[in-house]
Design a protein around this nucleic acid. Structure first.
Lengths: 332, 332
DNA sequence: GCCCCTCTTTGGACCGTTCCAGAACCTGTC
DNA sequence: GACAGGTTCTGGAACGGTCCAAAGAGGGGC
């Protein structure tokens, strides 16, 4: 038994397939009794429109592809939520693909999405291959969300304002009375921005010579090792601002292992407001990236480009918020 | 400029569209020079097959839908990885949908997948509506992965062996010398199985009267509160086995807050081997669910049903492994 | 009763593939 | 040089929708 088609519905309702199509697309040019008959027939047969046939005919899929760089990073879930809320309100679906999963199998993770002829593409996180993205962007609207990278022309970009976020943390620490403050830096555009903003903020408060920067690899282990080095110095800092939460957890371990109490002996702060930071056992002071708003804005950009294709790539930075929890306090 | 079609390629190569189709599907009934010409033309035009047209014609999509119940739970990533590795080897794609995201918008999360006419469906985690699943299962192969629930007939099921996992933990604790052992139970089929197995194992070692069970809600907060109650009893247990890692983190906080050292004064163990349990700051003893194997087996079941549709629903339980880390030790 | 106009309804072309029946082209044999 | 048999290639009919031009129905005015 093959699933029923529009023709089966038409036959059962005693009308033409065109009329069924009209009814199902909500036309008001149909007499009520026919509409009823069609809807009843569709209901009885359990009719579901065939998306492939529809998109073939309509030359659009009403679907946007979302390319995630790694499902293991949970920070993008809020982003997807924001994205989905706006897209859904406009009758669009989201299709997820994970780059990490597919890279193992050696194919371009975007291929299935492109073959499906999605109407637009949202790349979440660091993008795999900027050049490839440029080619794609010629054919469909593309938005890069949640990362700060140089993008090909015509690609919109939405991300949290890392400079502002890093400033919030640094000023929070300075406000608490800290002077010797260390930053556990990361790599990539995001790492760069947070580090620069940390340095600029320290400078603005006349603390340029008290700032220390250790570069890590954005992992717990890296945060741990860098912090051990930092806290073993004779002039050890009284506060550590880590480039992300996971690095911050490493810093926390290191402090504890060295017999320092947090936040009494040393304050630590992270970035991203991940679920880990909310564990009461860690309870990290951190920065919330406004993921939901980033997602909504990405959807907005996409919808704009559906209406008016072409034009310059735009950039929107969402305002982050400081989440003060248990790992920062006055220096002793 | 619309994307090139098979006809554009045919024209450029000076052959018929049928021949292009043959070449692209890898037929060996084609003269080498024509094959070359076709492949060159396709390359030059940047031709990509249109998945909608193909699936309409082939009456299959070469795609399986994966319905996740909540992207925030990271335990399924290994599962997806296993699933993808086998599916990809058979030329099948994976399409992800998140139930939690879409439930907010009030639609059935499986709808887009069904409209796309995926060839099969993998439901990961607790299923939303068992009855609806039965209807779907009449039309396509369905596998429930990573959860233990009563399923409609004809639905296969793959999950970690919760009874064995709970037994591993319990015997580990008993082997260390613990006698008064508490279990922080959860709800649902999984919670039930782990609790029962804990009780059965205690009984088998003649410790039925030393077993304590507290029921929680599988959250950190629940684990925290239950553990505070447990450890405030006069005959407090020397070990706590939590139904999952997140509950276990709550237990850890409680122990610490009550001034008890882990594992010196009290041992705690979790379940699921989540990334949280691997944080060196927590370093939980836990149980690995063999997510990768669950995923592979789910793919296997699906592939079997593609070849021979129909038949009874099968059940496979993957063998879990104990991960001994820092939160369990001999009682003092 | 006829014509015109508006409101409904319909047949058929089309979207980009696959697949099948049969055409065209070889090659070898008698 | 005709014919058989195999290999290689092609036209056209699906697949299940949308959309458009045009047909049909119904009502009002003369």
């Amino acid at each position: 038994m093959r699933p029923p088609t529009i023709r089966d519905v038409a036959e059962r309702a005693g009308v033409s397939k065109s009329l069924v199509s009209l009814v199902l697309r909500g036309s008001d040019q149909v007499r009520p009794e026919k509409r009823e008959a069609v809807l009843r027939a569709a209901q009885e047969l359990g009719y579901r429109p065939n998306a492939a046939a529809r998109s073939l005919s309509e030359q659009r899929t009403r679907t946007v592809g979302v390319l995630l760089n790694d499902l293991r990073n949970p920070w993008f879930v809020d982003l997807l939520d924001g994205l989905n809320s706006l897209l859904h309100a406009h009758g669009l679906h989201m299709l997820l693909a994970d780059a990490r999963l597919n890279s193992r199998t050696g194919q371009d993770p975007a291929d299935p999405l492109l073959d499906l002829r999605v109407d637009g593409l949202v790349v979440v996180g660091t993008l795999p291959d900027p050049a490839a993205l440029g080619v794609v962007a010629e054919r469909m609207p593309v938005v890069l969300a949640g990362a700060r990278e140089p993008v090909p022309p015509g690609v919109d970009q939405v991300a949290g304002d890392d400079e502002q976020g890093a400033r919030l943390v640094t000023e929070h620490l300075i406000g608490l009375g800290h002077r010797r403050i260390a930053h556990l830096a990361g790599y990539g555009a995001v790492g760069e921005l947070r580090r620069r903003s940390f340095e600029a903020t320290m400078r603005a408060h006349g603390l340029a010579d008290r700032a220390v920067v250790e570069t890590g690899d954005m992992t717990e282990e890296g945060g741990y090792r860098a912090t051990v080095r930092l806290l073993s110095r004779p002039d050890r800092p009284t506060a550590v601002f880590a480039v992300n939460d996971i690095t911050c957890v490493g810093a926390l371990s290191a402090a504890e292992e060295l017999g320092l109490r947090v936040p009494h002996d040393v304050s630590v702060a992270g970035y991203d407001n991940t679920s880990i930071s909310r564990l009461r056992h860690l309870w990290l002071t951190t920065v919330d990236n406004a993921g939901h708003e980033v997602g909504r804005r990405a959807a907005r950009f996409l919808l704009d480009r559906f209406e008016r294709p072409g034009g310059e790539g735009r950039l929107h930075l969402a305002a982050p918020a400081l989440e003060i929890r248990g790992t920062t306090g006055r220096p002793s």
